[in-house]
Design a binder for these strands. Structure first.
Lengths: 228, 228
DNA sequence: CCAACGTAGATTGTATAAAATCTCTAGTGT
DNA sequence: ACACTAGAGATTTTATACAATCTACGTTGG
């Protein structure tokens, strides 16, 4: 058995590029890299102790996900979305996610419900306020478990990207306005409806849930731009 | 004014990677690279007279568009979609495109209608049968012109990728069953409805159009797998 | 004879270095 | 003073070379 490798940055992945992508993605979603921030290949490569090739590839992957915008010969920045564009993300989610749930709900297994319960429990444990990052991870997994049996891999991939970006832009507002508590009760209700076979009711709730979060975000934005 | 550059492969682009991406994309959409075909970095690099780095980046971009599937350490192949997955693409289009048209229709300018007419005319010129490739290009531009004023850049980007893949899988069937003629008359009708302000009727037609092409493709597929 | 192992060849992934492009500033001429 | 050009520095893009990984086939041992 070879001794554990030096563990460059505690990143163990199939390729260095994917490891870098994961770390940079985390920082963007967590808000460490804010909108408009310039991502310089050299700086990232030096920090991670790798060459610039895998960094470039990581940035390209993140651009495909929409988190980064690359201008040829001018570098990459964390993508800046207008409120209209963020609203569009929520509209697309409200359109796509109920479809996925409708197709997936009846195929959810006992093990799936078990995992969903675990997630809901971890939500309600008191450490939610402390670890906003963990909350986002759980939120993503929650949705992925719900949709995994829809048999619509393309739609699920699209929704995955949308979720990630929505999370990034919702995070601040969520933690300030108590949106997380509300999301929790709605998520629990969602699982209850699915479990009892009321699929169309679950889909309607899901759609409303997404639309409400979007509206809430816009209201928050408008008040704060009017004030200042 | 500098004399036209050597023009390595008559590809003039901002970066070599994007030029390679465009050429490989064309070959995939045109069917020169069929589903499952292995895209070897070295072979492509040699053919284009470039190094493997821009080829790698081109392949990554194509993977983001869904045309290529990359397996780490094992290379890239032209993505193989099951009929179910192709049907999913059409379902997503049927869901998204009417939305885009609804938002964009009322903002279409005189110049836009001019361009749409040009496209329709080139459709009906008799060279359609000869240049299936050109038909696909026109089809893509037709939809892009229609949706450009929707103010939904993300949705339009998604639809752009979907269109490309649908084209690739529809092309053979279209040219054999006379689907192109039918598409032409429906496209013309679509423009007429938009121009006369009947937006919701146009959206309904568009949705039906997309769904019908999907069904037609599935029927064609089922007959040909039963026969053999 | 069959299965597990290991090595050779091919292919991809990464590092290093050179080339191309962009940005910003200083200088030049009108 | 102002616009325009030239060039230096910084950054990205591409080429070349090396390392890591996978695949296939032959070998060995049971």
């Amino acid at each position: 058995m070879p001794p554990a490798r030096p563990a460059q940055k505690s990143l163990q992945h199939r390729t260095i590029a994917s490891a870098v992508a994961e770390e940079v993605r985390r920082r963007i979603v967590d808000g460490e890299f804010k909108s408009g921030f310039q991502l310089r290949q050299d700086a990232l490569a030096t920090e991670f102790g790798v060459s610039r090739i895998p960094v470039r590839e990581a940035l390209m992957q993140l651009e495909a996900e929409g988190l980064v915008k690359i201008h040829p010969h001018r570098g990459a920045i964390v993508s800046e979305l207008s409120m209209e564009e963020v609203q569009e993300l929520f509209e697309l989610r409200a359109l796509l996610e109920p479809r996925l749930l409708k197709a997936s709900a009846k195929h959810l297994t006992e093990a799936d419900y078990e995992r969903l319960s675990q997630i809901l429990q971890e939500y309600s444990s008191e450490l939610r306020a402390k670890h906003v990052r963990r909350w986002g991870e759980l939120n993503t997994e929650f949705h992925n478990v719900l949709y995994q049996h829809a048999g619509q891999p393309r739609a699920q991939a699209i929704v995955g990207g949308l979720l990630q970006e929505c999370d990034r832009h919702t995070r601040l507002q969520l933690s300030l306005t108590g949106g997380m508590e509300r999301a929790e009760v709605e998520h629990a209700e969602l699982v209850r409806l699915c479990k009892s076979g009321k699929v169309s009711a679950a889909c309607a709730l899901l759609k409303k849930h997404i639309e409400d979060v979007g509206k809430s975000l816009r209201n928050y934005f408008e008040e704060h731009t009017k004030a200042t």
